[in-house]
């Protein structure tokens, strides 16, 4: 439990950055605990990369303070240059030095005396020992990205910043490179801050997720909290599929909606204007096999995903509801069905 006494790897408070008269980030504060992987999740242009660049020292905020392991590196009148922050950065497409081999790239930031040993160790860690002597343009995108990570880890940074590091990779490669890279980060016990627009990626990798939009932070929490207890309408709609339906509180733990009376027990409603109905809580049955209280609907959209169908249902008044149906159920567009919402739902 010594971790508790230690100051967090990164604390940023009240960051503001203007570009012209546009506010890129507006009063952003984040904390990354030592040894964890935190993700900043948000649509492109939400300001998440600006936060990263300020932490790295590549950009300066108009206001705000950044401390790394308790040491201030950015404050009014203080700007520690990037090379003296002990921060690592991996870009979305690898930025390897084109005039150096893979091994020379990995050893770039390491003092001469340790260069050989460190380079060998890290090349092995990311599984690139056999291409050490090749030039960056001779190896695959995934290998380049792993080399870029190894180069950063080689300097033993206090925190490593990952700027959409997997988004340029082909879908079939992404999974593999991602798990290799996270394994390497975890094995070296490195604290990491990942920026991504892919919620599936944030959920899969992060211990804690920070949801950002238009320069502001909407919610901070574990992936489960973010998904099951979204803080507001933006988070509910941005993170995962959901149907939002207007809600009126009728009894403790219940709201009345167009989809029937819904259970909101276990929630800490910050507001209860809308119920957030996730597709997995919508149970669909054949029209002639309706549960009590079920609503009739028609199938208007169908995406087969193997385990599931993602089904787009239309009610008689035109309202749309998303539902999951087991993949082995035969369904076709135009089918008449019935459905009911089960279990507790979140409200926003």
């Amino acid at each position: 439990m010594t971790q508790q006494q230690e100051s967090p790897a990164l604390v940023a408070t009240g960051l503001v950055r203007r570009f012209g008269d546009k506010l890129a980030i507006d009063d952003v504060s984040i904390t990354v605990r030592t040894g964890t992987l935190t993700a900043i999740l948000g649509p492109s242009g939400c300001g998440k990369t600006t936060v990263l660049r300020i932490v790295a020292g590549l950009d300066q905020p108009d206001a705000g303070v950044v401390t790394l392991s308790g040491t201030a590196v950015q404050a009014p009148g203080l700007h520690v240059p990037p090379e003296r922050r002990g921060v690592g950065l991996v870009f979305q497409d690898n930025v390897l030095f084109p005039h150096l081999t893979i091994a020379e790239n990995v050893g770039y930031g390491v003092p001469r005396s340790e260069r050989k040993a460190t380079t060998t160790r890290l090349l092995e860690l990311v599984g690139l020992a056999d291409i050490a002597g090749q030039m960056p343009h001779e190896v695959s995108g995934g290998q380049q990205q792993r080399a870029a990570l190894a180069r950063t880890l080689a300097t033993d940074p206090r925190i490593i910043l990952l700027d959409e590091p997997f988004s340029q990779l082909d879908a079939h490669l992404r999974e593999r490179v991602r798990s290799d890279m996270v394994t390497a980060i975890k094995r070296t016990n490195t604290t990491a801050l990942l920026v991504t627009h892919d919620q599936e990626e944030a959920f899969a990798l992060a211990d804690e997720v920070i949801v950002m939009s238009e320069g502001r932070i909407h919610q901070v929490g574990s992936p489960q909290e973010i998904y099951h207890h979204p803080a507001d309408r933006f988070v509910a709609e941005f993170v995962g599929d959901a149907t939002l339906v207007a809600a009126i509180p009728v009894a403790p733990g219940y709201v009345e909606t167009r989809l029937g009376r819904l259970d909101i027990s276990g929630q800490f409603p910050r507001s209860d204007e809308f119920a957030v109905v996730r597709p997995e809580s919508v149970v669909v049955r054949a029209a002639d096999d309706a549960e009590p209280g079920a609503l009739p609907a028609r199938v208007v959209g169908l995406r087969f995903q193997g385990v599931n169908h993602i089904v787009d249902l239309e009610l008689d008044d035109g309202m749309r509801v998303l539902a999951h149906v087991a993949g082995d159920v035969a369904l076709a567009i135009g089918d008449a069905v019935s459905f009911r919402v089960h279990g507790p739902v979140a409200t926003v």
């Binding site: 590549l58 090379e83 921060v87 690592g88 950065l89 930025v95």
Partner: peptide
């Protein structure tokens, strides 16, 4: 960004110029 990467890896401005800028 090559220059930025070099700075992030602990090289100062002059060292970066010499080791990245000049060779390229």
């Amino acid at each position: 960004r090559l220059f930025e990467v070099s700075r992030m890896l602990g090289r100062g401005m002059w060292s970066t110029g010499l080791r990245v800028g000049v060779p390229l």
